[in-house]
């Protein structure tokens, strides 16, 4: 169910997410300190390749990491296996990526 490939993918995405989460929280706290408005924040993120790459990577890592975690939970708690489990894993991963990518696009597209 959780083979070496999935295990490593989940660990590698966890390692990627650790600095991304910390940076995300630090920027959130910093951004609201000075009372930045939504328009001012969007002014900084829209058209920024850096923020697009930052949150694009974040969304990709979350999608892979969470899909594998949900797969393990569903297998152990609901007994789902085989093709059904594979379809669920891909659907969860692609669904999370689509939602995340849409948000990244909305915030960073010029």
């Amino acid at each position: 169910m959780l083979d070496l490939r999935l295990y490593m993918l989940q660990r590698i995405t966890a390692i990627l997410m650790a600095p991304l989460v910390l940076t995300h929280i630090a920027v959130m706290v910093y951004a609201i300190q000075g009372g930045l408005s939504a328009a001012e924040i969007l002014g900084r993120t829209q058209g920024s390749l850096g923020w697009a790459a930052f949150y694009g990577l974040f969304v990709a890592a979350v999608s892979v990491h969470a899909a594998i975690g949900l797969r393990a939970i569903l297998h152990e708690m609901a007994g789902l296996r085989g093709t059904g489990l594979a379809i669920f894993t891909w659907a969860a991963g692609l669904g999370l990526f689509a939602m995340g990518a849409r948000a990244v696009y909305a915030v960073t597209a010029a």
Binding site: M1, L2, D3, L4, L6, Y7
Partner: peptide
């Protein structure tokens, strides 16, 4: 390292 292996 398979589906029923140590990583579970």
């Amino acid at each position: 390292s398979g589906g029923g292996g140590c990583h579970n």
